[in-house]
Design a protein around this nucleic acid. Structure first.
Lengths: 66, 66
DNA sequence: TATCAATGTCAAGTATGTTTCACTAAAAGA
DNA sequence: TCTTTTAGTGAAACATACTTGACATTGATA
């Protein structure tokens, strides 16, 4: 699965730490999700979508092999 | 978080076991997600959305307290 | 009633998400 | 260059997702 969290953050001009605060997770969690190291829970995906004002499917996308 | 997987299954007229096969998880996983016992990964949410032909946000929704 | 398909549930084990703390590296600004 | 902010990374601990296997319950149908 891939994501464009970095782009969405850039659009809203917020840091990883700020996003982490907004959705109530640690900064490392944002960092590792953003760099594709692991797949977040659906609750986190929905929260990010809410913060960015975009549907989940515009932020996260399945890849070959998922 | 709540979900309407049961409704979506009804619309497509498929069983928990069939859905499980389609997204490659165990039948129990579908059962427990459907009954809200735990929150699935974003990959599973995207796969279900794909199966049902609906965006993730139409199947899963945040609740107070999430 | 007897049977079968579908669903619910339990327990134990494995895999993976998430946290905290700490430190390094890179980027941006004065 | 020096400083500060932001991002990347590692390890250990803990929480939760997911699996398998087995069995109980429900609902429909013959």
């Amino acid at each position: 699965m891939k994501n464009n969290i970095r782009v969405q953050r850039a659009i809203k001009n917020i840091t990883q730490a700020e996003l982490a605060d907004l959705i109530q997770v640690s900064r490392q969690t944002i960092n590792t999700i953003e760099s594709g190291k692991y797949v977040p829970s659906t609750v986190l995906a929905l929260k990010m979508a809410k913060v960015f004002g975009k549907p989940v499917d515009e932020i996260f996308e399945l890849e070959e092999g998922d």
